[in-house]
Amino acid sequence: MAHFALSPRRFGYRFNVVGMIGFAIILFWALIAIFGPFLTPYPIGEIVDFDYFGAMSSKFWMGTDYLGRDMFSRILMGARYTVGISLAAVMISCVTGVVLGMSAAVIGGWFDTALSRFLDALNSIPSKLFGLVVVAAIGSSIPVLIFTLAVIYTPGCYRFARALAVNINTMDFVTVARARGERIGYLICSEIFPNIVGPVLADFGLRFVFIVLLLSGLSFLGLGVQPPNADWGALVRENIGGLPFGAPAVMFPSLAIASLTISVNLLIDNLPQKIRDRSVV
């Protein structure tokens, strides 16, 4: 197979340096998510400082928040919610969206039309209204929050995966496979999926970012994370008043979000080529 030299191609399951860094940061946050609660120097709800938006100090490593609570402890605890909930939600929505999208493209016909219109309709319901209805109907808990986030992002995932799969579905090798009499499951797994995995992964990375940010919006509707706990987005939101002073209370959670989302996307972009480009073996 010819390899045009747009990028250095690597063989084997080898990570490049950037990918390693991304992976290390994700691993770091995952560990914090698990062990964070044992590391907090102060209870997260306790007001430890009379000052607010306090500066970084040896007592309060990341300053204090708008009430005078320790930011370092709050960020450690927030990791659990942000990393856990976002990863779970993005997994569910991407897996559902991609599987449905590929099925719709391969099966086509009424199945495709019905599913597409249904998900279009779902996507047209404003997410705030949807969130409120969920709180009213099911109540508030972490699984409900994950489910809501997943439902909100599935239609977008579906639409993108379907658009990709439709293009592949017209390729000769798929037509050949179909003529061979392969089952739909085979077509999806072996012919379509390997050829769209790159863009799908990129989509996964983006959706992860969106979910991390939407999470705080839904917590403010009263869905899921309850005070004094807060995810990182909520930490930024509640401390936004400190922005004019450049308070660490608003900077650190923002940095935490950025470091996590950028690493996830760097890791995806730098996955070993064998995973990314299975189309070109």
Binding site: P43, L132, L221, G222, Q226, P227
Partner: peptide
């Protein structure tokens, strides 16, 4: 929490 009284804050929508 400091005296062993467990109060569970439930934030609900302002809506």
């Amino acid at each position: 929490a400091n005296i062993g009284m467990k109060l569970d804050v439930q934030r609900v929508p302002s809506d």
